[in-house]
Amino acid sequence: MKTEIRFDTDELAKELEKAGDEIVKRAAPTAALYGANVFYQALKAEVPRSIKGHWFSVRGSKKYWFEPGNLLKAMYVGYDKKASKDTLKVYKVGWVHKNAPYGYMVARGTKLETGGVNTPANPFMRRTYQKASAEAVQASADRFMEVAKEVLDGR
C-alpha cells in the first residue's frame, strides 16, 4: 500500500508575496514615523535650554535676539520625500536652522581665537542617538509587526 501527499506551493507563494507587498506598503510609513517620534521625544529631553535670552551673531554680522528655550522650539520631525522610496521611508529629526541658527555651535562648541566667546560642545544630538536609537528601532519593528499582523489577519 502506498500513500502519496502532494502539496502545491505556487498559490501559497503568490499569496505570501502579495501579503508581503501589502505589509511593506502599509507598514513602512508608520513604522519609520514611530521610530522617529521616539527619537524626537528623547531629543526634546536632551536639548540644552538657557535660563535667559541671548544675542547671536556670526563674525560681526547683525545681532539676533533669541528667547530662552528657542532651540527646543525649533526641534522638528519631518518626512523626507526626496530620500524616501517605495520601501524606504525617511524621517528627519533635528532643528530648523532658520529658527535657531546657533544650534550647530551649541552641539559642536566654539573655539574663537579672535577674542570671541569659547563655548564647550554640548553634543545633545549624539547623546540622544546613543540613548534612544535602540528604542527607536524597536518601536519601528513593533509597529511593522502590528501592521503585518493586521494584513495577515485580513484587516
Rank of each mutant, 00 (worst) to 15 (best):
Q41F: 05
K111A: 10
E17V: 11
K82L: 15
P123E: 04
N118Y: 01
S61A: 12
L43A: 01
Q41A: 11
V137I: 15
V151M: 06
A132D: 06
V147F: 05
S57N: 13
G116V: 00
S84Y: 07
H54I: 02
K62N: 09
V58I: 10
Y34T: 09
A28F: 05
A121V: 02
L112G: 11
G60E: 07
R59M: 11
R49I: 02
V96G: 00
D8V: 04
Q130M: 08
I51H: 02
A141K: 13
D8F: 05
K82R: 15
F66M: 01
F144D: 00
R6K: 15
A134K: 14
M75W: 03
K18S: 14
Q130H: 09
R127S: 06
A132T: 05
V47K: 01
N118A: 02
A136F: 03
V137T: 13
L152P: 03
Y102T: 00
Y104R: 12
T3Q: 14
M1W: 10
E11N: 10
K81M: 08
N37W: 06
R143V: 04
V24M: 13
Y104K: 13
M105G: 02
P123C: 04
G116W: 00
K92N: 14
K14V: 12
A28W: 03
D86C: 03
G20E: 12
A32Y: 06
E15W: 10
G115E: 04
H97P: 05
F144I: 02
M125V: 08
W55I: 00
K62Q: 11
A13G: 05
